[in-house]
Computed example of a mutant assay.
Amino acid sequence: MGALDGRVAIVTGAGRGIGREHALLFAREGAAVVVNDLGGANDGTGSDAGPAQEVVDEILAAGGSAVANTDNVADWAGAEALVRQAVEAFGGLDVLVNNAGILRDAFIAGMTEQQWDAVIAVHLKGHFAPLRHAAAYWKDRAKAGEPVAASVINTASASGTFMPNAGQANYGAAKAGIAALTLVAADELERYGVRVNAIAPIARTRLTLATPGMGALFAAEIPEGEFDPFSPANISPLVAYLAREKCPFTGKVFAVQGGAVSELSGWHGTRTVEGDGPWTSDDIEARLAEWVR
């Protein structure tokens, strides 16, 4: 018996890297998996049905259940078709793992509108669009009196939470938005039986290998037989746990890397100054001066 027996899951960006590991583990745990991947390059250009189908073939060869999907998750109709395919192929939907992403790194002063828009579209809209259509499905089920015990796992990033990275204003902003989206969605969808969490993973993928200043770290060779702290396979057990029907967590963001899982907290006040009446800018200067001593 697998921990996800009978669960139907969508995993976006599942043709390679972390998403591929999610899909393979979900299938081993008994889930039926819709393996979504547009099959584009690191920057989102192009398409290739091969990566998604290869993962499906691997799952089927191992005795699991899976179908391929190559819809663009940043496309409204594509995201709707993705959710519909899960329901039509497997009779329902229990888990949505939003993982698809691209990189178009550039420093702010040189970033183009296209570089900004493309990354925001794939990451932020590409999380919201499948979430929106899945949420509508679960809302309809709940209002019809059917039991719903669904789970959403979004993919944020250290770049958008606790480790901002120069050259990734578009990526970091999108990932920070995903973390915020997770908290709002958890609050909204709990009434329909849906839990929503996010992860901020650190692992070796084709995107992290292409990240300036990080590629060398992730590319370091690990001696055979030793634990690989940057293997993408290290990320998936947490995601599989969050996908379980009885998992109690919702509205959480977890950093995960190697053998470590940390719960992250958002913006919170650290210091406060108060006055008895209206402020002037001179008042602010005087009061905040103590913060820079």
Rank of each mutant, 00 (worst) to 15 (best):
L131C: 09
Q168P: 13
D140T: 15
A166N: 08
G110P: 14
R104G: 02
P212V: 09
R104W: 03
A135K: 05
G50R: 03
H133K: 09
F218Y: 14
V148N: 13
K139Y: 07
L264Y: 12
M214K: 04
A156P: 08
T250Q: 08
D48P: 12
F218S: 07
D43R: 03
A180P: 05
G50Q: 01
R287N: 12
A89S: 15
D228L: 00
N69I: 00
A233M: 05
A106K: 13
Y137C: 13
A77S: 12
A200M: 02
D228I: 02
L96K: 10
F254Y: 07
A66S: 11
I120F: 13
E245K: 11
E29P: 00
L25N: 11
M111V: 14
F26G: 06
F230R: 07
E113V: 14
L189F: 09
L209S: 06
A169F: 09
A260K: 15
K139L: 08
P229L: 01
L60R: 15
A174T: 12
P248C: 01
E54G: 12
P248T: 06
K143R: 15
H22A: 03
K139I: 12
F26D: 11
P164V: 10
P130T: 02
G46E: 13
I153A: 04
T112P: 00
A109K: 08
E88D: 14
G92C: 01
Y241V: 04
T270E: 11
G39L: 10
A142H: 05
T211I: 06
S47C: 01
E274W: 04
F90V: 14
Q257F: 05
A86M: 05
V292W: 08
M163N: 15
G193K: 04
E188F: 02
R204G: 10
L217C: 04
S47E: 04
G78E: 07
G17Q: 08
V83Y: 05
E263L: 02
L131R: 14
V67S: 06
K143M: 12
A142M: 01
A255Y: 15
M214P: 02
S65K: 10
L183W: 12
V83L: 03
A200Q: 00
T250A: 06
L82P: 07
V56Y: 14
N98I: 10
L4V: 10
R195V: 07
T205R: 04
V194H: 01
P248L: 00
E224M: 05
G2A: 08
R132W: 09
V87M: 07
L60H: 10
G266H: 05
K252G: 07
I178N: 01
V122C: 13
T182C: 03
A169W: 05
A210N: 08
A66W: 10
V122R: 09
A216N: 08
A240I: 02
P229E: 01
V97I: 12
R7A: 08
L93F: 00
T272W: 05
W138I: 11
A149R: 11
A243T: 08
R84L: 10
R206Q: 15
S159E: 14
L25D: 15
G258T: 11
A219M: 04
